[in-house]
Design a protein around this nucleic acid. Structure first.
Length: 340
DNA sequence: AACACGGGGGC
DNA sequence: GCCCCAGTGTT
């Protein structure tokens, strides 16, 4: 009986698994579902290196789902600051509260999929990794590995369906969690997006893209659109060692996060340039920042000895600005002012 | 199906 | 600089 793809990969994983804070070693009992869930949400579109310190901080401060469920949402948002995609943090709180209310995580992929912030990938990953269920786990790593293994050259996103079918076909009933993590480790360290290390790959012999001689060509992706450049202003309003901060509304850009007041710039349009209050503004410089679908030049202007703006907001001690939970854009703006 | 949604790592 | 990343929710 020839060794299957999953046999080969699990054997490779037993020898080469990365040691990560949210992981159990290969072949050992699954880790705490809370830690699996938290890590998976943090890892959505986010690199392992970026996640590690946040995962440590979250699990130290909120050791279990009940603790996270009891936390004020603003505290969680502030702790998430810098990690990006802040809807994840909003959904994290909702999900923790739903799970705490029902007395623990559901154990099937179908039920997990109903929770806020758990889409097809995360529901499958948690079911497989935390609950040893057979689930087909498809993330960007798996897409790349499978597209190459089977030489699927349809462009993403049309390739998603055949990739899923192929991934399903090679997913084993036993050790589905280890298999999923093995695919991700292979994708992140061997079958990399650029210059895949085929000489180190346990699947090189069966890889159809390898046989063509140009595996890096796959997966084929649709061309991306150019990012527009937006311009806006942010306002540093200061008095007696404090700065005026607001909370951004809604689910849009940086929604729910603490911020400096601004002139209404967005990914779709420039700001008006209009200040939230009268007075004399002094320029502190420009912050350049790139979002997913727009670049921003944010002009930062300052007014000192200012009265309170006629709006919602709060005075925040400048010597504790690092604790305000400002997203990176506004943290950069604050650094600019304080360095000047 | 297409778009909105951050930020940092790696080269 | 550019490409990429353990995707999800909305339209």
């Amino acid at each position: 009986m020839a060794a299957t793809v999953s046999d080969i990969l699990l054997d490779w994983y037993d020898r080469h698994a990365r040691d990560l804070p949210w992981r159990a070693p290969p072949g050992t009992p699954p880790p705490d579902p809370y830690r699996v869930w938290l890590s998976e949400v943090m890892l959505q579109q986010t690199t392992v290196a970026a996640v590690k310190p946040y995962f440590e901080a979250f699990t130290r401060r909120w050791p279990d789902v009940a603790a996270l469920a009891a936390a004020p949402e603003d505290d969680v948002m502030a702790a998430w600051a810098g990690l990006g995609y802040y809807s994840r943090a909003r959904n994290l709180v909702k999900c923790a509260r739903a799970v705490a209310a029902r007395g623990g995580f559901p154990t099937t992929e179908t039920e997990l999929r109903e929770l806020p912030g758990l889409g097809a990938y995360t529901a499958a990953a948690v079911a497989a990794i935390a609950f040893a269920q057979r689930a087909v786990v498809v993330d960007a790593n798996v897409e790349r590995v499978v597209a190459r293994l089977f030489a699927i050259d349809t462009p993403i996103p049309a390739a998603r369906k055949p990739i899923r079918v192929a991934a399903d076909a090679i997913t084993p009933a036993r050790r589905a969690g280890d298999f999923a993590q093995a695919m991700m480790d292979l994708g992140s360290s061997v079958c990399t997006a650029r210059e895949p290390k085929c000489l180190l790959c346990p699947l090189a012999k069966t890889c159809k893209a390898r046989a063509t001689g140009d595996p890096a060509r796959l997966p084929v992706k649709a061309p991306k659109k150019p990012k527009p450049l937006r311009r806006g202003r942010a306002f540093w309003i200061e008095r007696e060692g404090e700065v005026w901060l607001v909370r951004r509304e809604g689910k849009g850009m940086l929604g729910g996060m603490r911020a400096l007041p601004d002139d209404g710039w967005s990914a779709r349009a420039d700001g008006t340039g209009e200040a939230p209050m009268p007075g004399t503004w002094e320029s502190a410089g420009v912050v350049r920042h790139v979002f997913t679908h727009a670049a921003l030049e944010l002009s930062v202007v300052v007014q000192r000895n200012a009265p309170a703006p006629d709006a919602q907001g709060e005075w925040w001690p400048i010597d504790r600005i690092d604790d305000a939970g400002l997203p990176t854009l506004f943290a950069k703006a604050a650094r600019l002012v304080l360095a000047g």
